[in-house]
Structure formats: C-alpha cells, structure tokens
C-alpha cells in the first residue's frame, strides 16, 4: 500500500483545478472524521478504565464514522489516480494501446458509478420510509444516504473528468500505483 507514494496528478485546467480542490477538501473532512474516531475511541478507553462507563453506542458511532470517511475519500482517490491496476501484460505496450484500455476502464467505472449512485438513492428512500434506526442511539439510518449520494456523484464527475484527461505518457518507468 502506497501511503504517499502515488504520483501526484495536479491538473492545470480550470475544471480540473476546481475538482481537485473540491475532492481534496472532502478528503480532508473525511480525515477529520477519522481523527475524531481516534479521539473518541481513546476517550472511551479512559472512560472504561477509570469510570467503568464506555460511551454508549460507541460502536455505532465508529461504524457511521467509517462510512462517512470512506465516502469522502473516494473522489480524491480517483482524482489522484489512486485506484490500483495490474500493470504487467501491457507494461511495454505503446501509449495508445494503454490509453485505449484505460479509456475502457474509465467507461466501466463511469457506468458502475452511476449505477451505484442511482441505486443508493432508492436505498435511502426505503430506510426513510421504514424508519430504520441504529440500535442503541436510535440514529436514523437514512441520514447517511443523501451524504453518500453526494459523495458518489462527485466521484462520478471525477471519473468523467479523468476519462477526458488521461494520465500522461510515463514511458518505460514502472508505475508505482499500489
């Protein structure tokens, strides 16, 4: 796992710059959520150790926090081309061949992204209508859905952008994209 090793694709065109800033801001928000999870969990340990009372429903909060962060991370990951590919069989193929298949992959991602976003809207409506909540804290489940749909929509827009702005020709350099 790369952790800071992925190449940075900083777009220079206007749309790209706006998208980059948006996805980055969203990713930082997700990072803040992970930070809060760390602080809450650590606090909960102290609560358990010294007051023998863990935060009620902390597990539910961690679960919701995880999904909140992951949704926020997805568009940024695609913006910096962080999604992993097997770059072996076409490693020495000409740039045109590579970018052709990258285009196919982008189209697939675009279609699947739209599908997931579209279906998630109905998932939210279902859970809203049924009034489903988390167990202990009774947090309505549907509230994660409009947020998730927004994040997925941004992901779809970014996928469309990366489809139109393929990665530059890196020549024979092995791409480190794990």
């Amino acid at each position: 796992m790369s952790e800071g090793l992925e190449q940075s694709y900083r777009p220079t065109d206007k749309v790209g710059r706006v998208l980059f800033a948006l996805t980055k801001a969203l990713a930082l928000f997700g990072g803040a959520v992970v930070g809060l999870m760390a602080i809450m969990t650590t606090t909960s340990i102290f609560g358990r150790a010294f007051l023998s009372s863990p935060i009620a429903g902390d597990i539910e909060l961690i679960e919701i926090g995880t999904s909140t962060a992951v949704f926020a991370f997805l568009p940024y990951c695609q913006m910096v081309r962080g999604n992993i590919i097997v770059d072996f069989f076409l490693a020495s193929a000409p740039y045109r061949v590579k970018s052709f298949f990258d285009f196919i992959g982008g189209l697939m991602f675009l279609g699947i992204g739209c599908l997931l976003t579209w279906r998630m809207i109905f998932g939210g409506i279902d859970l809203y209508n049924y009034g489903e909540t988390t167990g202990v804290l009774a947090i309505p489940r549907w509230i994660s859905f409009p947020y998730g749909v927004l994040c997925l929509t941004l992901l779809v827009v970014v996928v469309a952008y990366t489809l139109l702005h393929p990665a530059p020709d890196t020549g024979d350099e092995p791409m480190i994209q794990e």
């Binding site: 023998s52 863990p54 009620a56 597990i59 167990g135 009774a138």
Partner: peptide, 26 residues
C-alpha cells in the same frame, strides 16, 4: 453495577441499563 453486558437488541440494552449496568448491543 460496574459491569458492561451485551444485549441482543435495543430492548436488551434498555433492560441492562434499567438495572444500573452498562449495556451494549453487538
């Protein structure tokens, strides 16, 4: 009192809380 016990759903957790013990549902 002072124990944390697991209940199988929210009613179970409420029951544990009513007895003064911390209940969690997992």
């Amino acid at each position: 009192k002072g124990m944390t016990l697991r209940g199988h759903n929210r009613i179970g957790v409420w029951f544990l809380q009513s007895l003064g013990t911390a209940g969690i549902a997992t």
